[in-house]
């Protein structure tokens, strides 16, 4: 770094130009707002508003939402109660109690697997830590609870509501080829809203038919 001159001792405020004194630049500002207004009024501009809950923003496949406990083909939980997720969690919101599994190949399974959703900060560390791909995160973020009791979700609730619809899976350890369809979908960034709208219309027509 080269040595520079002394720091300026006093501020030198901006001096108005004649045009600014005459309030003339206001016209260009008014033109900007007028342009936006006219465009939007006649439907030429892009409306950005997402009409939640009918339309939804298209989140990426990595979105860190509500957790899912994955299952084996026979329907049992893949979790082996190794406590790595609980150790990795900075919020200490995962509570596990382990039990002996009748199958000798599988050492343990969780008797209890509770996540306190109100404590959880959705950092995804549990997913990173899991050696079995037993916990992943979904794209679901519609959560609200009326009392604290509801907010502690048990292992049944964690695995139940999701039928492993590929599009609803969120943060998970690795992404099989990152889904070319998603890449194509998300190419034009500003069109996300349009895309969500179109998908909404598609699903609506599907349900109608």
């Amino acid at each position: 770094m080269s040595s520079r001159g002394a720091h300026p001792r006093h501020p030198a405020p901006y001096r108005y130009t004649i045009v600014e004194r005459l309030y003339l630049p206001l016209l260009s500002g008014l033109w900007v707002t007028l342009r936006h207004f006219v465009r939007n009024f006649f439907g030429r501009g892009k409306t950005y508003t997402i009409n939640y809950p009918e339309e939804r923003r298209l989140y990426s496949p990595r979105y860190r939402g509500h957790h899912i406990l994955t299952t084996r083909p026979d329907g049992s939980l893949r979790c082996v109660a190794c406590f790595l997720c609980a150790a990795a969690c900075p919020a200490e919101c995962i509570h596990i109690e382990a039990g002996e599994h009748p199958d000798l190949n599988i050492e343990k399974y969780p008797l209890l697997y509770n996540i306190d959703m109100l404590r959880c900060v959705f950092c995804g560390y549990c997913v990173d830590a899991c050696p079995e791909e037993a916990i992943i995160m979904s794209n679901n973020h519609d959560m609200a609870y009326f009392n604290r009791g509801q907010s502690v979700v048990t292992k049944d609730e964690l695995q139940k509501p999701y039928a492993y619809d590929e599009s609803r899976l969120g943060y998970r350890p690795h992404y099989p080829e990152e889904q070319a369809q998603h890449a194509a979908l998300r190419h034009g960034l500003v069109d996300l809203v349009e895309e969500a709208r179109r998908q909404g219309a598609d699903s609506a027509s599907r349900t109608a038919s």
Binding site: Y14, Y16, V19, E20, Y23, P25, L26, G29, W31, T33
Partner: peptide
Amino acid sequence: KLIVSNRIWLDRAV
């Protein structure tokens, strides 16, 4: 365009 040489803002900020 809206702000930088708008005198209303300049009077508030300079």
